[in-house]
Structure formats: structure tokens, C-alpha cells
């Protein structure tokens, strides 16, 4: 009843996204440390994040954070609401739907500059 069912997938996704976000966190702590070496070093390192391939990594990070956050709420609801377990599968689908719904608009802002669309301002200001 468990293997291959929504419960196993939600658990596996929670784990994989959690580990992915943790890995990024450790890298991110190292990259912000570069700010202590002055504007030139930091601004140069920042250009990495403008790279289209690295933008795809950012998308994976954002999707992981959103899923992990919503599924975390689902886990807490199952823990503290006595009838929560009865709706675990419906809540899993709600988590997936919310993840996609909130991911799409955020993804637009992250990926648009690759196609020369800069909703946040001047495209020329963005080092690619």
C-alpha cells in the first residue's frame, strides 16, 4: 500500500529537495563570503548567476524550496490534526498544484532576461 503510492513519492521528493537546498546553502555561504574581498571580486563572482545555465539551476532551487515548504506544511497538518492522515493524498496533490502555481510566475522573472526581457528594469544593467 505504501510503495509507489503518493506517500512514498511525497517523502522521497521531500528528501531530495531538502538535500538539494542544503547543498545550495553551503555553496551560497561560500559565495557570499567573497563580498569580504571587495566589490571587484564580488561583482565578478555574481556574473555566474546571470549565466543562462546557472539560471536553470536557480529554477531547480526555487522549485525545490517551494515544494519542500508546502509539503512541510502538509507534514505538520498530518502531525497535529487527528483527521489529517485521511486527506494526505489530496493534500499531496494540493502541494504539487501550489508548487507549480507559485513556481511559474517566479520562473518567468528568473528566465526572462535570457530572452532579452527584463521585467525588473534595464537589460543592459544585467551582465550575462
Amino acid at each position: 500500500m505504501y510503495r509507489g503510492q503518493s506517500g512514498q513519492w511525497s517523502w522521497l521528493l521531500h528528501r531530495v529537495t531538502g538535500l538539494g537546498v542544503l547543498l545550495f546553502l553551503l555553496v551560497h555561504i561560500v559565495d557570499i563570503t567573497l563580498i569580504g574581498f571587495g566589490p571587484q571580486v564580488y561583482n565578478e563572482s555574481l556574473q555566474v548567476f546571470g549565466n543562462p545555465v546557472v539560471r536553470l539551476v536557480s529554477l531547480a532551487l526555487i522549485a525545490s524550496v517551494l515544494y519542500h515548504a508546502y509539503n512541510g506544511v502538509r507534514v505538520i497538518i498530518i502531525d497535529f490534526w487527528s483527521a489529517g492522515y485521511k486527506y494526505q493524498r489530496q493534500m499531496f496533490y494540493a502541494v504539487l498544484a501550489l508548487t507549480i502555481l507559485s513556481f511559474v510566475p517566479m520562473a518567468f522573472f528568473v528566465i526572462a532576461p535570457v530572452f532579452g526581457v527584463c521585467p525588473q528594469g534595464d537589460c543592459n544593467a544585467i551582465p550575462m
Binding site: 571587495g38 564580488y42 561583482n43 548567476f49 510566475p105 522573472f109 528594469g121 544585467i126 550575462m128
Partner: peptide
Amino acid sequence: LVIMHVTNDVSSTTY
């Protein structure tokens, strides 16, 4: 995430 990737583009979060 919203501040660093939506209201600003990550590449403009300079020194």
C-alpha cells in the same frame, strides 16, 4: 527568494 529573484534580478544584487 522574491527579493533576490523577482523584485530584483539576481545579477543586479551587486556589492
